[in-house]
Design a protein around this nucleic acid. Structure first.
Length: 421
RNA sequence: GGAGAGAUGGCCGAGCGGUUGAAGGCGCCUGACUCGAAAUCAGGUUAUGGGGUGACUCAUACGGGGGUUCGAAUCCCUCUCUCUCCGCCA
């Protein structure tokens, strides 16, 4: 959520920023809701002040053992009048908040303006894609080696699920352990979290109320729990409603979790293979910082994700997303894209975002500066990395003419073999 | 699943219808003492929202929601969570 003061102090620049990402800010509705809210608050507070004054009078009289009956009679209907006003106040506050919570974050000034992915800017490339004659894709390679079984996955769960077998399952586990080991060694304190969360946690990171259709929802009686779409959700919410000390920042966590996404609206996209699944594994990096630390932390976090790709000898590039291609909550996002020989292109394998205080405001996460009042901190996160897509990249980039897969050196101790097949 | 206890400020912990935004302690800040530090002493130290250029002022908040009352941290209902004991269980 954006800071209401931003609207009050610098409405025009906010509107311009939002427009750059293709969001049209409804100025009229905003002003109507804001003035209504303030009107009701003031009305209620005048009445409450009056009630408090009279109650004090009553207290004084009673202590002096005098009669206060005339005041009490006079105040009889105060309760009802106030109750009505309080209801109106709550409604006005809620309407205002609902309006604000559907407004996306304002892009940072360093973000290029653009409508969609064509406006993204490539920042760097690392590694030269190997020359492979007639490269096979991971489905063909995996199926032949008996390490991937999509047909049987479909039998039990339908489309967009997979079964990994033998060395395929072991490779998945190896990647998870390698990534979690590396990131925790790099200073990202590991956490294991719930995979089901309450609605307010999803709201806190900005995926509710607008993106419910992307999530799996479960019911327990009347209560809703969502399956997490990313570890960002539980890890960011670790400190909801808390005030952290400034010297705790930057606070860095990594978390391995499965991720669940309904992929509504992506019918026909990446239907082949395990690039886009309803369930996949990810090692996520999440950072909490002061506003001053945030931009440097964004670079650091991205570098930590890149380090995994480099250790795995996977060619990749870093892309700075333009205003029109960024997620709802983000101020600035780098995507890391890995080379896939079968597609002869780079595909997203990590997304590293800085959210400013947008999520912190929604989840009410603050820090106490050395001298001064508590203020909202900044949050950042990025994949380090998406495990399923890394599995694909290792298999496709490591493929040999005989159909076997060469395992990257750093992974050999984890896999227990130098090649598969 | 059964029985009971509890939830108060950054932390611990009193209060159980009206001078309590909240005793006392810890922590933290300022000052005194000191060459400096520790100890000691004195003072200060919640957050959010409204109004005001400002000093300031008003409102709200004692797990969440609802109720009783002129007035609720205090009484009633309800939900959530935590703890103890019993049962069941990976």
């Amino acid at each position: 959520m954006l800071d209401p003061n931003l609207f009050r102090n610098d409405l025009d620049s906010v509107i311009r920023g939002l427009a750059s990402r293709g969001f049209e800010f409804d100025r009229e509705t905003y002003q109507k809701l804001d003035s209504e809210r303030r009107r009701v608050i003031q009305e209620a507070e005048v009445l409450k002040a009056e009630r408090n004054r009279v109650s004090d009078e009553v207290a004084k009289l009673k202590r002096a053992k005098e009669s206060a009956d005339h005041l009490i009679t006079q105040q009889r209907d105060m309760g009802d009048r106030l109750k009505n006003l309080e209801t109106a106040e709550k409604a006005a506050e809620a309407a205002f908040k609902d309006f604000l919570s559907t407004i996306p974050n304002v892009p940072h000034e360093s973000v290029p303006v653009g409508q969609d992915e064509h406006g993204n800017v490539e920042m760097k490339r690392w590694g030269a894609p190997a020359v492979i004659e007639q490269p096979k894709d991971h489905v063909e390679l995996g199926t032949k080696l008996g390490i991937l079984d999509l047909d049987r996955a479909a039998k039990m769960s339908g489309a967009r699920f997979s079964v990994l077998k033998g060395m395929g399952a072991k490779l998945e586990r190896a990647l998870i352990n390698f990534m979690a080991d590396r990131q925790s060694a790099a200073g990202w304190a590991e956490v294991m979290t719930p995979y089901m969360v309450l609605p307010h946690s999803v709201y806190g990171v900005g995926q509710l109320p607008k993106f419910e259709q992307d999530l799996f929802k479960t019911m327990r009686g009347e209560d809703t729990l969502y399956l997490i779409s990313t570890a960002e959700v539980p890890v960011t919410n670790l400190y909801r409603e808390e005030i952290l000390a400034e010297d705790q920042l930057p606070l860095r966590h990594c978390a391995f979790t499965p991720c669940f996404r309904s992929e509504a609206g992506s019918y026909g996209k990446d239907t082949k293979g395990i690039i886009r699944q309803h369930q996949f594994h990810k090692v996520e990096l999440v950072a909490f910082t002061t506003p001053e630390q945030a931009l440097a932390e964004h670079e650091h976090l991205t570098a930590c994700a890149e380090a995994i790709l480099e250790a795995l000898e996977l060619p990749y590039r870093r892309v700075l997303l333009c205003t029109g291609d960024m997620g709802f909550s983000s101020r600035k996002t780098y995507d890391l894209e890995v080379w896939l020989p079968s597609q002869k292109t780079y595909r997203e394998i990590s997304s590293c975002s800085w959210f400013g205080d947008f999520q912190a405001r929604r989840a009410n996460i603050r820090f106490r500066p050395k001298d001064g009042k508590p203020q909202f901190l900044h949050t950042l996160n990025g994949s380090g990395l998406a495990v399923g897509r890394t599995w694909v990249a290792v298999v496709e980039n490591g493929q040999q003419p005989d159909g076997s897969i060469r395992i990257p050196k750093v992974l050999v101790p984890y896999v227990g073999a130098e090649s598969i097949g």
